[in-house]
Design a binder for these strands. Structure first.
Lengths: 189, 189
DNA sequence: GCAGGTTATTTCGCCAGCGAATCATTCGTC
DNA sequence: GACGAATGATTCGCTGGCGAAATAACCTGC
């Protein structure tokens, strides 16, 4: 049977021998990134069908899932791995579109609660059906068993990643390449 | 067993029951996206150590791997899942920084060959060591066996995704949400 | 040898997101 | 009860990337 190469196989074939690094690791990471991009593109097209930008849907989704359909900007930003500034931007857009409502906190007036509007919830539901299609198209390449396996493996990595992310908010740089001076040949400009 | 939940577990726990869609599929996709983001962040910090933006490194990387360290913008754009416009932008930046050189094709003068400069190649090599660290940090959560397994599974999905991407350049929309009933939880294959 | 279509790259206008600084409010401590 | 540090959100300037249109060169067929 034909080898059935994906673009990463081709990439690695070219790469082989040109630099002394672990091919398998590169393969995992590259596939991760490519897949994420494909998924994003796929979803984008689907969400467009109900007139939602990708970032809008994502935000609605995280909101819809929470009790009372509300959360604070910080919580959402954390969920979505987004900067505070980015979050404000998204909320501005969503509020403008009437999909979301901002409610200044009463007890602590620094806080803001973001709440899904009826319209927002409806749009989210509508978009869900399309999102489902997009996701199934790609994940559909795996059977139930394989999905479970890939989930377990991805989770393992994600746990590590989240651990690292949490840690690096603390102490300063721990990880550096082994050694050898990378030719700090100064400003090579 | 030990809970050891990642953020996606928590997300799904909230989600459960709020909408009638396949949890496993959502899990796979969400983890993919989160991981990709973590990886990107991680790499960004590493590449910054040698003064490269993420997009610069990626481009150099794809170039360095090719014979003669050259390729056309279109090829690179395809490799990187980038729009033509985006590619031009990247190349402008890289050329300006002296990491890359544009060479107008002689036979076909529409074409442009992009070539790594010495400086570009050096920077790439330097950055590789850091990239390696970033990748290992996360993929390091898996042992050799698991890496192979995850690679195989990701490849399966990526093949599907690339197939779909190639297809959709052709005929107009084929995929739409089946109906209002998303319940086909049966074995798909 | 030129009209019309195709292919490769670039230009243009736009926008989501980031980092850093800012504003508003609360908390801690004396 | 007032001062400074901490916290949550927002504003500001900038930039990478996209989509669509423009540009430039090639390739027919006649």
């Amino acid at each position: 049977m034909a080898p059935l190469e994906d673009s990463v196989d081709r990439h690695l074939a070219r790469w082989r021998g040109k630099a002394p690094y672990d091919e398998t690791v590169e393969a995992v990471v590259t596939r991760l990134q490519m897949l994420a991009k494909h998924v994003a593109n796929s979803k984008r097209r689907m969400h467009a069908e109900v007139g939602l930008a990708d970032f809008e849907f994502q935000t609605l989704h995280r909101l819809a899932v929470r009790d009372g359909h509300r959360a604070t900007p910080s919580e959402l930003a954390a969920d979505l791995l987004l900067s505070p500034a980015g979050m404000t931007g998204r909320l501005d857009a969503l509020e403008q579109a009437g999909l979301v409502r901002r409610i200044r906190g009463t007890a602590d007036r620094r806080r803001v609660d973001v709440e899904l509007t009826e319209h927002g919830h409806a749009k989210w539901l509508a978009a869900m059906r399309f999102q489902d299609v997009a996701e199934r198209q790609i994940v559909g390449a795996l059977d139930e068993r394989e999905r479970d396996r890939v989930n377990a493996l991805l989770k393992k990595m994600l746990l590590r990643a989240e651990e690292l992310a949490a840690a690096d908010s603390g102490p300063a740089g721990t990880a550096r390449p082994a050694d050898t001076s990378p030719g700090s040949t100064g400003p090579t400009a």
